[in-house]
Amino acid sequence: MNVFIKNILRFTVILLLQVLILNKITLRWWSEPSGFPIFIPYVYPLFILLLPFETPVWALLILGFIMGISVDTFMNTAGMHACAAVLIAYLRTNVLSALLPRNLSEYSGQHPSIKSMGWMPFLVYSTFLILLHHFVFFGIELWNFSNFGALLLKVCVSAVTSMLFIIVYLLLFTRQNTARI
């Protein structure tokens, strides 16, 4: 499949998944009345994480912005998601080149995935960027750093949950090449 069509499809699937299903899920880890704030898993940064290796940074930025602003439109958070998404789109290349053994230009025609990078590097890559994304997003949403511990707790807990959903998504939507020889 053409890489453009593939990514447009992925954009639509991830956006609808985020907006129509995940936004309706309310999660809380323990339910005392004054306990932990409720949160929802954010899977849409995965679209930015999975763009091909050779995507230029300006394209990453613009695609990240479009993804963020679409989620913002659906969630009435004007700009908050876009802000976090643009940041991780900008840092993506640096994180990738720090993690991969070879130069990025040598991976032509591939995109970051468990198959092309291996489990550990991919998990480190996505966890780092997801944590950063959540930190920026919840920071902007709360905009009150007097209770920094609670903010960090919320970021960590929802990043772990988002990562679980991301791994489930990857396991579901990665084609198993070993099955057909």
Binding site: I62, F65, G68, G79, M80, C83, V86
Partner: peptide, 10 residues
């Protein structure tokens, strides 16, 4: 530039 656009929107 994009970040500034976001901040203006917020």
């Amino acid at each position: 530039g994009l970040e500034i656009v976001c901040i203006v929107l917020i």
